[in-house]
Amino acid sequence: MAVLHTTNKSPLQTRDLESCLRLSRSGCGILLMEDAVYGALKGTAESAKLAEAAKARKIYVLGPDLAARGFTPEHLVQGVKVVDYSGFVDLAVEYHHVQAWV
């Protein structure tokens, strides 16, 4: 069963997201929240890694955290989906278990 990975640090500041992408398997979900939402933006030095991972994984960002930081869905790497808090709960239920990369 697929795992939902969560991460909350900016990939431009720590390597948490990179490890998450490297160790997560295809078919899993990855939810980017808090400062990790910067990792879902296109046009950054880290965008390509996420875009590559997104080909075989579902990538989600927490909408309230994205808006707080001054970005909108149009700034996201292609294929990244925005969820709200209740969407987060739905994902946690939908996946087999949740693994946090902190």
């Binding site: 309230p64 808006a67 707080a68 930081r69 001054g70 909108t72």
Partner: peptide
């Protein structure tokens, strides 16, 4: 990022 325009924090 502190200076990014358009920050909306109501929902956090």
């Amino acid at each position: 990022y502190q200076l990014k325009k358009g920050q909306q924090t109501k929902d956090i």
